[in-house]
Design a binder for these strands. Structure first.
Lengths: 111, 111
DNA sequence: TATGATGCCTACCGTTTCTAGGTATCAATC
DNA sequence: GATTGATACCTAGAAACGGTAGGCATCATA
């Protein structure tokens, strides 16, 4: 990974994918681009991380997939957030907020 | 883990340990207590996570360890942040801030 | 005496992300 | 026409890390 791009922490990728899909149906490659763009190029999801993650997430019923042709005429696999996925996104966002808060508390402490 | 305690994300434990030690020398068991206390009981580090982490961190030169007897008369292994460790803490805090910011950006997006 | 807190440790498991490869199509460039 | 880079999918394997579950010892308290 380029040195100006941050590595993700384990557990954050699912949330990012679900969030990207909450903005609208999208194919895999597009998810990577959307996350990169929304984060001002700070987050770069590798393909080798994304596709297995999408598989996992689909197995859990958080997204549904279908092959389709998009406007450019190319085929791609489009993913859509399910109702369960939307719920899961909320849960993961709440956990994330909780963790960020807890860590902030620890960091507030002064010697 | 109790259900009201959050699991850590991988990569955050080192930072928490270093932060705990930045407040003063401490033994392993005490690090767990300090992190729990500072986080208002939100973070609970398991012993099975801590001791291997301390070993890793010591190998990297971020902390130094020595056996000593503390005021209660019990022996314990005391860890102290090294200069390198203090530097590392800053680096990890910066990475953390960066990640939190990047994820916040993604989450700001509205459909 | 028995239990719970303190204090250390290890072995193994599960999860997740990354690296590194592979394949194919298409546009642009040489 | 050939090559390159972007788009688009995928897999295998490695590495890292935190958790679970166990073990052991000491000490205070019930």
């Amino acid at each position: 990974m380029a040195k100006d791009k941050a590595d993700l922490l384990q557990g954050t990728l699912d949330m990012l994918i679900l969030k990207a899909l909450s903005l609208g149906e999208l194919h895999g490659y597009g998810i990577i681009q959307r996350i990169r763009q929304l984060s001002d190029e700070m987050l770069n999801v590798e393909q080798g991380s994304l596709y297995p993650a999408l598989y996992r997430i689909e197995q859990k019923g958080w997204v549904s997939a279908r092959w389709d042709v998009h406007e450019t005429g190319r085929e791609a696999k489009f993913y859509k957030l399910t109702r369960l996925g939307r719920k899961q996104l909320e849960t993961q966002e709440a956990s994330w907020d909780r963790l960020v808060l807890a860590i902030a508390k620890v960091r507030q402490a002064t010697a």
